[in-house]
Design a protein around this nucleic acid. Structure first.
Lengths: 209, 209
DNA sequence: TACATTTGTTACCGATCGGTCACGTCGATG
DNA sequence: CATCGACGTGACCGATCGGTAACAAATGTA
């Protein structure tokens, strides 16, 4: 359901050079990454076996290991795929509101609030960070890098919207979003996340010029 | 370190009827729950085997299964133990600031901010909720119940402190705390959680009467 | 002392995990 | 047609998992 919207963005467009002309069927690598994203999100990373990923990708374990040296490598690749989706989200946001940066910030709140409703599993990056406690796991580098990029974009958005303290506002919004997502898992849809939008608006108003 | 403060509350007091007079050594059941709490927090729930728990508790797997019917049951019991620590935290908070409810709210912020510094693993309850995706897992009932109790206490605290909208303020503070904790795992100590305290103060000021 | 309860020890079970090997199949290219 | 690379299939490996059986040792109680 949530994977369907991403499947149309990634594979079809980028496979023209490969000249694969069969009926819309993508190559195994993309299917594996896509399936890994879905299963990791819905069942957790450790709880998802490589065989289940291969099966969901309509292929087999051997082909999976021909493309990815290990499960950890596949995990990193899946996180990078999610990072690409985040980047696409930001590009679409700036494209939809090219001039009015104030409206762009409000749209960010609204879109994130909407994602809280139909995505009950929280942030895939943060969930991975929570689940993979080994501090030397290669996924942590990917996660930190993506989170840093997101923070930079959010700070820029707050600055464009004319906040008095863009860094503080960005961090506040980041904590509110992260907290809303995780409390969606722990306390349900009727928990604190219910008032995510109002809390964001209050923060924006509090840090206005 | 954090486990030590709880060890003095639970076992010693409740074991007088058992008449165990050996040198301060607690009974296996408490040691198992305590070890489970520590290992679950430091290594994750799924990544922690029952044998490792028994070993850390200075006992063996057979004794563990004599006290707990399954690992899932032990998980629930460990979460309940953590719930007791939360309750102790709140009791101490109200005991330390019996009169000044405004100061009590500020102390809540300060204590939570301090816990962000020396506890890099976030909220054990939320982490468990994220890690255990099976919606029918018995741990979810425990988690939701504890989270609901915490929410009630936080709302009461905000109301006592004279907020205009205690429910909204409590939810905002809950999201900020939850988000600060998880972003501590995903983005490091220099991420958004760095400004948790300031964000809380701004929220409190925004919702003041 | 005699008994009952709680622990400790060891070996074991079936299942699943991540990962590999050998071989067979297919489609594209020359 | 021949070749080559990507893919599919199934069996297999060692390790680890949660959980159990059987028996010995310790412990408290009468």
């Amino acid at each position: 359901m949530s994977i369907r919207s991403s499947k149309i963005t990634n594979p079809v467009v980028t496979e023209e050079l490969a000249g694969n002309a069969n009926g819309g069927k993508t190559r195994p690598r993309e299917r594996i990454v896509s399936a890994a994203c879905t299963l990791f999100r819905e069942n957790g990373i450790r709880a998802t076996g490589v065989e289940a990923i291969a099966e969901a990708a309509d292929t087999n374990k051997m082909t999976l290991y021909r493309h990815f040296g290990s499960k950890d490598e596949l995990i990193c690749e899946a996180l990078k795929c999610i990072s690409d989706r985040h980047a696409a989200f930001w590009e679409k946001l700036t494209a939809d509101f090219p001039d009015d940066s104030q409206a762009r910030l409000l749209a960010w709140v609204e879109l994130r609030a909407a994602s809280l409703v139909d995505e009950p599993h929280g942030c895939d990056l943060s969930n991975a960070a929570v689940e993979l406690k080994e501090t030397d796991h290669p996924a942590h580098a990917v996660i930190e890098q993506v989170k840093a990029a997101q923070h930079r974009r959010l700070v820029a958005l707050c600055a464009d919207a004319g906040s008095r303290d863009p860094d503080l506002l960005a961090n506040t919004l980041a904590m509110l979003l992260e907290g809303a997502r995780v409390s969606r898992c722990a306390s349900g849809a009727e928990g604190p996340c219910r008032q995510f939008s109002r809390a964001c608006h209050a923060a924006i108003a509090a840090f206005r010029n």
